[in-house]
Design a protein around this nucleic acid. Structure first.
Lengths: 108, 108
DNA sequence: ACCTTATATAAGCGAATACTTATATTGTAA
DNA sequence: TTACAATATAAGTATTCGCTTATATAAGGT
């Protein structure tokens, strides 16, 4: 059972357009850091810092494969986040909003 | 149709425990500012500023009655917020978490 | 008119946020 | 080992945030 403060702190992380887009994308499948670096118009360290915040709250899970790191959604025990993400547009719409198309992932 | 940024900006407002509690309380009925002043352990101007932010994003609606101002929820056209609030505990639990009991409202 | 009550606004301040550049770490491959 | 690619961390900075105190506005009662 989460406290009000915990829930607010989780939601605070969704209050940033980059992290919100990341989570909406992660709804569909797991993504490699290198893909996020291609998609978002911010530096690689900025990407890394966003993912660290999400991971530190247990909202995403990381899995290393060789030199690549893949992130996946981990909101099974977070109904508030599940509910929001359910209302988010699909990956295609998100990428369109970011003016990006899905390319062959860098980590193949 | 809301942009990603708009949705993130809405969610950012839920990322504060005071505003999140206010909205959870407003799910049940409308509340007078004076009640919020009693419930939350912050100054009256702080309450007023939180409500102004929520109003400026169209998340709540105000209605003046004499010298009192009542706020009500206005999230019909905001499915993301509706979805989160649906998962929030009821007023009783919120008040319990704040160590407050519902008293006779100041504005009767 | 005056005083009181309810609410809003203004100004200021310390803490948190999201970014940047520079550097460290880790893994792969020659 | 050396070099390179992917990712993370550190440090610095400008902006935003949430609070406070002080003051303004507005409505009600006498």
């Amino acid at each position: 059972m989460q406290s009000l403060t915990d829930i607010a702190d989780d939601l605070k992380l969704l209050g940033d357009k980059t992290r919100l887009a990341m989570l909406a994308l992660l709804k569909e499948r797991e993504w490699c850091v290198c893909e996020f670096v291609d998609i978002f118009d911010i530096s690689q360290p900025a990407i890394s810092q966003h993912l660290r915040k999400l991971k530190s709250k247990g909202i995403v899970r990381e899995s290393k494969r060789g030199q690549w790191v893949h992130y996946s959604l981990n909101v099974e025990d977070k109904p508030h986040l599940k509910a929001v993400l359910q209302e988010m547009p699909n990956s295609e719409s998100i990428l369109a909003a970011l003016n990006k198309e899905v390319k062959a992932p860098c980590c193949d």
